[in-house]
């Protein structure tokens, strides 16, 4: 129990020490000079993000609001632009936090093309936020393609729901 508390404290200290700095767009990983395995690094990253979300409270939920896209498109709708504008305000308010944008696709397309399309959707949001003055170093993107559907059904409503960007506050 004590060890767990010490570990959590260390993670919080590490997280706080990172705030206020522009985070590199590329996450750390094997080959970056650390001895930890990829799995261990990933575990640490996720735990740090969980603690950050707890700390941010409601702002974290607002930051997480998704945006949606048309079929085979990465064009931002008026609604999406409005949601992104609000995110830029939150990010200006919380100058120490960064943002991971996760691009997702519907089930109709095929997996590999959708991984690329998901990246394009994530980049569309990232570019918009950059244009609003959020430094590129505070934004990173990852595509899940069609690997993480919110709705696994095979109909127009489900496809529309799955064509989305998700947003995650990070350190």
């Amino acid at each position: 129990m004590i060890q767990k508390k010490i570990l959590l404290l260390a993670l919080v200290v590490m997280m706080l020490s990172l705030t206020g700095f522009g985070c590199a767009k590329k996450a750390a990983g094997p080959g970056d000079g650390t001895d930890a395995s990829w799995e261990e690094q990933e575990r640490q990253r996720l735990e740090q993000e969980r603690l950050l979300r707890e700390k941010m409270g409601q702002a974290s939920n607002e930051l997480a609001q998704m945006i949606h896209f048309g079929f085979d498109s990465s064009e931002l709708s008026a609604e999406a632009r409005q949601i992104l504008t609000r995110k830029s305000q939150i990010m200006n308010e919380y100058s120490g936090i960064n943002l991971v944008i996760e691009g997702n696709c519907d089930q109709r397309g095929t997996a590999e093309y959708n991984l690329a399309l998901g990246e394009r959707r994530a980049q569309a949001a990232a570019t918009y936020l950059s244009n609003l003055g959020i430094p590129a170093a505070r934004i990173s993107t990852v595509s899940y393609g069609k690997e993480r559907p919110l709705n696994p059904a095979n109909n127009e409503a489900a496809w529309a729901e799955n064509r989305r960007d998700e947003f995650r506050a990070t350190y």
Partner: peptide, 26 residues
């Protein structure tokens, strides 16, 4: 596919696959 980026995995016939970080997220 990790939480912040994609990585390249290479399995060489046994044991744990090697994970390579590339200078990009996709």
């Amino acid at each position: 596919i990790g939480s912040r980026s994609h990585y390249l995995g290479v399995w060489s016939g046994g044991g744990k696959p090697k994970v390579y970080t590339l200078p990009c997220t996709s």
